[in-house]
Write a protein that binds this DNA or RNA. Sequence first.
DNA 1: TGCTATATTGTTATATTATAACGTAACATC
DNA 2: GATGTTACGTTATAATATAACAATATAGCA
Lengths: 166, 166
Amino acid sequence: MNASKRSEQFPTADHDHQTCVTHALQEAEDFCLQQGLRLTELRHRVLELIWANHQPVGAYDLLEQLTHEGRKAAPPTIYRSLDFLLENGLIHRITSLNAYVGCNHPGLNHAAQFFICEACGQAAELDDAKIESVIARDAKRLGFTVEKRTVEVAGICAHCKQGPHP
Amino acid sequence: MNASKRSEQFPTADHDHQTCVTHALQEAEDFCLQQGLRLTELRHRVLELIWANHQPVGAYDLLEQLTHEGRKAAPPTIYRSLDFLLENGLIHRITSLNAYVGCNHPGLNHAAQFFICEACGQAAELDDAKIESVIARDAKRLGFTVEKRTVEVAGICAHCKQGPHP
DNA sequence: TGCTATATTGTTATATTATAACGTAACATC
DNA sequence: GATGTTACGTTATAATATAACAATATAGCA
């Protein structure tokens, strides 16, 4: 497997992260072009920062990174960009962290699950149909119509169990 | 089924909520006695308020309810009680709502799933072993050690689909 | 092109949720 | 009752998020 491929697992320490960021941005640009969405300079930069951080990152962290590069930015600036990226499936919000992370499958309006390492801070995005189907079964039993699923599992990733943070 | 029994489903409009609160409190008292935990007057009252609200309730809502009954209370007052109740499994925190709800199975250190109705605000607590096992399987595949699970499903409950909020 | 409607961003203020830090009171044990 | 521990009171502040309105940029059309 190519080391730069963004995949459903925790990234290794030596993967080519720059390529992985570039690829994600390219995919987002293509997607927005297709969909007639305006990936403005600000939105593009926010998405880039999210990917560059390489792990779930808070809104105010992003805000600080923006202002440190000279841009005028207040909380609404960042939250509006996050809203755009969330609505169009380019990022996910991790509720239990109040943090945001790039989506591995932009465009697909999928329900993702996250495995979040409490040691290194990285999160793996899964899209396990089995979890979805079990939730759907429970919902059916309850007569419940599902709108939104939040599945977040915190713990320690394989890399961190073996040694210091990768 | 007894209308006052707290169960793994959405409560009906006509269930005997007072009995259900009383029962929960009695169970908590018994549990704390057994475990040598101090269910102080404040903690008891906070737990009672949580149950009485009958749906996930925010920390500042609880705080207001406390102060309205004449008690001196600041945020740390309520958060400390919430921490005690959380640590001892008497309540759950619903991450996606920043709200707290009574636990249906105090004592069991179980991982719960919540189905949250966006119309009436009520939440049903499930304890579906199947969800747990699927998550465990994914974790094993990732080499991930699970510490904490968050499974929260938002949508519309059966009562609210049929008519106005129950 | 220039006009106009809409979408985006800037700006100020504030809401909401949660914790830090330190002092006081209650309680439990000896 | 002295003493150590736990719980609570109090003040201040951190962290996350949104409301409201002004200014600017963009898109689509006359």
